[in-house]
Simulated assay, not measured.
Amino acid sequence: MKQIFLLLLLYSTGMMSQNTGIYTKNPGSSLVVDGSFAGNYKIVTGNVILDDSDFYIAYNGNANGIIRLPVAISGPGNFKGRIYRIKNTTGNWNLTVTAQNLEKIDAATDVTGIVVPPGYYAELISKGTATGTTWELSMLVPIVRSSRVIKLVDVAYSVARNLSTTDRFIIRNEYSQPITNVIIPQSSTSFTLSEPQKVFLNFAAGIDNLATLQPGQMSTIFYRCELYIDNVATGLFQIVPLDGEGSQLQFSLSGVRDLPAGPHTIHAKFSLWLVGGTYSFTSQFGVMSLLLSATHIN
């Protein structure tokens, strides 16, 4: 009697057929669910090790976090095909997903761990192997969300109309001596990044040529302006020709640079750009206007 009841139960659930269906009598695949599906949803704020009760994990900590994948199993209990879906919901912190026991993840290359940046989603699947590359990264994508432009630096300076500039600086050059770079007044400031970022830089300046060059063997003279971050040249520069006393020099620089987390300084440097000949002179300049901004998108 028990055997007849078991056979009827298996038949009613579709287990006697090749395919199994839930809320469907004619499943076209090994398992068909004609309705909703739910997996475990978990929010974590610290480091965790995943197990067979996990499915979707949202990381919402207030520091960089680590999620460890379970150790592979050989034989009974092997979880080939198990999927973990992981989302980093923080705004400023990186999440690292790592394998254990020298196991690796098949990403672009075989790696021990992957970084899920803020606002990114990752999906991993077990390959069923017990050693070596046991996991595969099937997806790592940014989450669609609204972006905010964060201002790190916002400097605006100008001389009032009909007034002469008081922010003056001097360029001196002696025969056979290295030409010095002079920091342009009003351009020095600092900022701090809580995490590595792409920073958008913009700089514009109007410089007044105030002094007369001393006599010398003249050829072609240009002036050069470049942005420096942490006192290292950024490669964002412009060169303009000298027009003589009473003329104005205009510079406009912009670009994007990848910067690490931590404090940073920024300023613009002014120098000569000489073409041929030898020179010995002193030249004085003044800042008429200056704009400097640094931003990143969060």
Rank of each mutant, 00 (worst) to 15 (best):
K151E: 15
I239C: 07
M16P: 02
E123P: 03
A130S: 10
Q250P: 07
I125Y: 09
P118F: 11
G206Y: 04
G91M: 13
D34F: 10
D208K: 09
G81N: 10
T180N: 10
V115M: 03
L272W: 03
L152M: 05
V116L: 11
D54H: 11
V153F: 15
L6W: 14
F191R: 07
L124M: 01
D34V: 04
A205W: 08
T131L: 08
G65N: 00
R85D: 02
G81Y: 13
I4K: 10
K80G: 07
V199A: 00
L7N: 14
F5N: 11
F203C: 04
S12N: 12
V141F: 09
L31P: 01
Q197P: 08
V182N: 02
R224G: 08
Q197K: 15
G77M: 10
A38H: 14
V199F: 07
I125D: 02
G35A: 09
E123G: 07
K127I: 08
Q177E: 15
T13L: 14
G65R: 01
L31C: 02
N94H: 05
I22G: 02
I266S: 05
M15V: 10
A108H: 12
V199K: 07
H267K: 06
G77L: 10
G244N: 02
V149S: 08
P27M: 09
I229A: 00
V182L: 06
W273H: 06
A72T: 03
T13P: 05
D258N: 08
I105L: 03
A233I: 01
A72E: 05
I143G: 03
G81M: 11
V44K: 01
E136S: 11
W135P: 02
Q18L: 12
G246E: 13
A130L: 03
G216H: 01
G132D: 04
L69R: 01
G235C: 13
Y41P: 02
N60C: 04
N231P: 00
K42H: 11
T212V: 12
W273N: 10
L274G: 08
I171V: 13
M15C: 07
Q214D: 15
G65D: 02
V232N: 15
S29T: 07
V111E: 03
V232I: 15
A63S: 11
V149T: 08
A204C: 09
T131C: 12
I4C: 08
N94L: 05
N64P: 06
S158E: 14
G39D: 08
Y157F: 14
Q3F: 14
A294W: 14
G77K: 03
A233E: 07
L290Q: 05
M15N: 12
R168W: 06
T212D: 14
A63H: 09
G244I: 02
V33D: 03
T20F: 06
N298M: 06
W273R: 12
S29H: 08
G119V: 01
D110C: 04
P27I: 04
Q248M: 14
